[in-house]
Design a protein around this nucleic acid. Structure first.
Lengths: 230, 230
DNA sequence: ATTACTAGGCCACGAGTAA
DNA sequence: TTTACTCGTGGCCTAGTAA
C-alpha cells in the first residue's frame, strides 16, 4: 500500500475542494498547478502519482481529463484531519513551572489594592484579593521564556482606569494553582517592565499561610491558558 | 513571513504531541528523527529551520535542548486543521449524473415486489414501492465509473431473506431525486452483474407518470451518499 | 488549447564525522 | 551521549518541447 506523499497533500485537498469526492470533476493541469503554487508539469506529475497510488481516479478522453477522489484518498485526508483534531484539542492548555518564594512586596502589590482594581477583581474573579502579592522567582530560563509568552494571551482582562489625576494600566489575570493546592491568579501588569524572572500572584487567601511556606520555599505553579489572543 | 514547509508539518505536529504548546519540552534529535521516520540529521535540520521560520523556540544548554511551539507555529497547524475541516464537512455528499430512460423491466423489477423485500422497504424506506423499476441508461463513462463506486457505501441496507427454497440477496438503497422533482431510491442488488451503465430506481410513485416522461427522455439524477462504509 | 515527456537545477535527506 | 557540520545521492521541481 503506497503512502501519500506530503507533497501531494495540498493537491489532493484541492481536488476535494473542487467537489471531487463523489463526482468526476474537470481539472486542467495548468489551473491545478496555479492553485497549488506549482508548475503545470508538477501538477501533471502529481496527478499521475496520485493515480498510481490509488488516491484518485482519472478518466482521460483526448486532451481532457476528469478526476475523482477515491475512498482511499478521502480516508487519507480524513486521517490527517483526525490527527490534527486530536492534537489540537488534547494539547494541554496549561503552563507548569517551578520557582522559589521571594520577598519584596512586588511592584503590583500597592496598586492591586486600589478601588479601581478591586471592584473589577470582585466582579471578574469573584473575590477581592488578600492584600499584597506573592512573588515567585523563576530560575530556569525555559520557564521564564515560556512565561514571557503569556502576554500573547488575553487571560482575564482588568481594564485600565483613572482617578482623575493619572491613569492606571490594565492587568491580565491567569488562573493558577500553586503546589496543586491553592487557587490564585498570576497577574501581568501593563505598566511593568517585562521581567519574567519574577512573577506575581494574587489570591482570595493569604497564600503563604495557606501553603504553610516561607521565604525561599520551592513551589510548583500551574497556569491555565485560554485560547483567546490579544 | 516565512512559510511552513510541508515537509516540516509532521515534525511540528510531533512537538505539539509532546506537549510543547505552552511548555518547553525536552526532545532529542535522535528520538524526534525516529518518530517522524527520518534521520537524526534531518530532525536537526528541521528544528533549525522551524526555529528560523519562527514556528518553534529553542533553548539550548550544552548538548540538551528544550523546545516549545510558538503562537505562529500553533496557528499554522490550526489553519491547516480548519482548512481540512471545511473541506471534509462541506464536500458535497451527493453524486449527480445524467442518463436516458430506457425500456425493459430491469433485472430487479420482479424481485422487488416480493414480500421479503417489500416488508423491509415499508419499514426502512417508509413505503412499498410502486411495481416495477425505472431504468436509466448512463452514457458518459465518468458517470458510470462514479456509480460503480457506490458499492463501497452502505446506503440503506435491505437484508437478504429466504423463502425456504432459495435465498434472495441484499439490496442497497440510495436516496435519489430525479429531475430535481421526484424522490426515489437507486437500488444496488447483490445478485446482479455489476454493470453500472444501467441503474434501477424504485419509488413510492410511478416515476414515469410523475415526471411526465417517456422512453429515451433525458433525466438528471442526484444521489445522496452517507459516509458509512461497507 | 491540452497532457506529459526529457533534461537539468536545486533541495531534502542520510552517512560520516566533529565538537 | 548530544547537536550539527560537510558532502554525495536521489528525488522534486520547472523549462522546453512533443503530440
Amino acid at each position: 500500500m503506497t503512502d501519500l506523499k506530503t507533497q501531494h497533500l495540498l493537491t489532493l485537498a484541492h481536488i476535494l475542494s473542487k467537489g471531487g469526492k463523489h463526482n468526476f470533476v474537470n481539472v486542467t493541469t495548468t489551473s491545478l498547478g496555479k492553485e497549488i503554487g506549482k508548475s503545470q508539469q508538477s501538477a501533471s506529475l502529481h496527478l499521475k502519482e496520485l493515480e498510481s497510488g490509488g488516491f484518485i481516479e482519472r478518466i482521460q478522453s483526448g486532451r481532457k481529463q476528469s478526476i475523482k477522489i477515491t475512498h482511499k484518498g478521502f480516508v487519507e485526508l480524513s486521517t490527517l484531519h483526525n490527527l490534527l483534531s486530536k492534537l489540537i484539542s488534547k494539547s494541554s492548555n496549561s503552563l507548569t513551572f517551578t520557582g522559589t518564594i521571594t520577598s519584596g512586596m512586588g511592584e503590583g502589590a500597592y496598586y492591586m489594592s486600589m478601588k479601581g482594581y478591586t471592584k473589577q477583581f470582585k466582579s471578574k474573579l469573584g473575590y477581592v484579593p488578600y492584600p499584597g502579592t506573592l512573588n515567585v522567582q523563576i530560575k530556569e530560563k525555559k520557564f521564564s521564556e515560556a512565561i514571557s509568552q503569556l502576554s500573547n494571551y488575553e487571560g482575564i482582562k482588568i481594564n485600565p482606569f483613572s482617578d482623575g489625576k493619572r491613569t492606571f494600566g490594565w492587568v491580565k489575570c491567569f488562573k493558577s494553582k500553586i503546589n496543586n493546592k491553592v487557587d490564585c491568579e498570576l497577574i501581568l501588569l501593563e505598566r511593568t517592565h517585562h521581567d519574567t524572572t519574577i512573577v506575581e500572584f494574587i489570591s482570595k487567601h493569604n497564600i503563604r499561610k495557606a501553603l504553610k511556606i516561607s521565604e525561599k520555599s520551592n513551589v510548583k505553579v500551574k497556569i491555565s491558558i485560554l485560547d483567546n489572543f490579544s
